[in-house]
């Protein structure tokens, strides 16, 4: 019995030593206009930020895929492939394959068979139209690193097999890369803009809160509250509301992005699985989406701190 009593006394003493909980609303901020406005506006910005982030990540992936895929591929056409090469005792096709294999910056060289060439031409010429045609040989080349020195290589190949064509797809791969980089830059610019607008929204909401709770703020200032005390209360509230808004915006963006990912899957080489509850999104996007509410919270905290301290500074 005595132990229980002592325990009760110790618990009461612990309770008595506790400080006022940090979330106490002494300034009446819960009645402020920011309650609905701030999460909604920050949520809208988080939604746009999610889309911009997805755009940036998709453009980067697209650009990378083209760098590794078509941009790294060369097609070499050798007319009259069975004829003797001009500079060696081989036929022209074998000579071209040998020269390509010996060239720096080339990972793989594959001469297409007659059947493979016929299959490629089938949609245009029909199934047996290639019979009897003097088709050039086609060599598929995969470059590595910076690729081969194209001008020198072409001259060398033409010297061995006159009329040889080297198609590096250079023009349109460069254009696609420029497009991908532009989309990426736009997406980052949009993210920066959205962040700026979100900061402006928090500033406006905080200033509205200060005007609305002016009497309470001046009173606690007069009672000896420091700028840090007052700013902390506004910042705690702005942090919670901005986090909630960020979370909401991301939650709304997720199905939109999943839908876009499902539409884009066939274009980027993936397969949309109709049975999956959500098409797979890039891991970077998941991390980015998880970071958005945290960034919103940090933005809310920092902006409210700066705004409140600036508002209080003219007071004595």
């Amino acid at each position: 019995m005595r132990d229980e009593e002592a325990q009760r006394e110790r618990a009461a003493a612990r309770r008595a030593r506790r400080l006022r909980p940090a979330w106490s609303d002494d300034l009446g901020l819960r009645r402020g206009v920011a309650r609905k406005l701030l999460p909604f506006m920050v949520g809208a910005m988080a939604f746009l930020a999610s889309l911009a982030l997805a755009g940036a990540i998709a453009a980067a992936a697209f650009s990378r895929q083209w760098q590794d895929g078509p941009a790294a591929a060369l097609t070499v056409q050798v007319p009259d492939p069975a004829a003797k090469a001009t500079d060696a005792p081989q036929n022209r096709l074998d000579r071209v394959v040998a020269l390509l294999s010996a060239s720096p910056g080339i990972a793989r060289v594959q001469a297409l068979s007659h059947a493979q060439i016929a299959k490629l031409l089938q949609p245009w010429l029909g199934s047996d139209a290639t019979q009897g045609l003097a088709l050039p040989a086609v060599v598929a080349v995969r470059a590595e690193g910076a690729g081969p020195p194209l001008a020198e290589l072409t001259a060398e190949l033409r010297a061995a097999a006159p009329g040889t064509l080297v198609d590096s797809h250079g023009d349109w791969t460069r254009r696609i890369a420029a497009l991908a980089h532009s989309v990426q830059a736009l997406a980052w610019a949009m993210l920066a803009l959205v962040t700026g607008v979100a900061a402006a929204v928090v500033t406006i909401a905080t200033r509205a809160g200060l005007v609305q709770r002016r009497d309470a703020v001046l009173l606690v200032h007069g009672l000896g509250a420091t700028d840090a005390d007052i700013a902390r209360r506004f910042a705690a509230r702005a942090t919670r509301l901005a986090f909630a808004g960020g979370l909401g915006g991301c939650a709304v963006a997720l199905p939109v992005l999943a839908g876009l990912a499902a539409l884009a899957a066939p274009l980027v080489g993936g397969i949309a699985d109709p049975a999956a509850w959500m098409p797979s999104l890039p891991r970077a996007l998941w991390f980015g989406m998880a970071a958005i509410p945290l960034v919103c919270a940090a933005l809310g905290f920092a902006t409210a701190q700066v705004t409140v301290r600036a508002w209080l500074r003219p007071l004595p």
Binding site: A16, L27, V220
Partner: peptide, 27 residues
């Protein structure tokens, strides 16, 4: 200049809370 959203108790407790006094003493 009482804060209208706070009870009489919380209005009087304000200076003590700003001074960081424990709730037991404030009560």
């Amino acid at each position: 200049r009482l804060l209208p959203h706070l009870s009489a108790f919380d209005n009087v407790a304000l200076p003590l809370r700003l001074a960081g006094r424990p709730e037991g003493q404030i009560q």
